[in-house]
């Protein structure tokens, strides 16, 4: 049997194949078995968090940090521009497709997690804080 990948100190172990994930509903699932609905449902239940659709608009080698990739996203209804630098093996959950990364081979090698190839145009699951209602918007107590 193939040896289970060992999480290096810098590799987050919640992406290791077989890692147990607790959804906001209390349900437990393995990271490789998660589906889009699990994230959507958890955000609904958790109250303070909101799921955003973040479209990948550009992928390039990071200028500032050699070895990392710069991912450029358009985030949420506002299509806000957000750029993050991540290791190429970092997995992202793509709506309707599942786990994807810039280097599926390295993701499989380091985490044991099967991934699609992340591409421009992919829409990833991200979270942000639920916009707090402004005081004047809050319903007056009946």
């Amino acid at each position: 049997s193939s040896l289970a990948p060992v999480p290096a100190p810098c590799n987050p172990s919640h992406f290791m194949k077989g890692a147990i994930i607790q959804l906001a509903t209390g349900e437990l699932k393995r990271v490789e078995d998660l589906q889009t609905q699990d994230f959507v449902r958890s955000a609904e239940v958790s109250g303070g968090l909101k799921i955003d659709s973040s479209m990948v608009v550009d992928i390039r080698a990071s200028q500032q940090r050699p070895g990392l990739v710069s991912l450029h996203f358009n985030v949420g209804e506002q299509q806000s521009k957000v750029t993050i630098d991540v290791p190429p093996e970092h997995p992202f959950f793509v709506f309707g497709q599942g786990w994807s990364s810039c280097s599926p081979e390295r993701t499989a090698q380091l985490y044991g997690l099967a991934c699609h190839h992340l591409q421009v145009g992919d829409v990833c699951v991200s979270i942000t804080l639920q916009q707090q209602l402004q005081p004047q918007q809050q319903k007056q107590p009946q």
């Binding site: 147990i20 957000v82 993050i84 959950f93």
Partner: peptide, 25 residues
């Protein structure tokens, strides 16, 4: 007797990026 090995459980929101636009946006 074998000590039961505790299995770590991770919260769902640790798996997805928190992509809050910076103020400059």
């Amino acid at each position: 007797n074998v000590e039961p090995r505790s299995v770590p459980v991770f919260p769902w929101h640790s798996l997805v990026p928190f992509l809050a636009p910076t103020q400059s946006d």
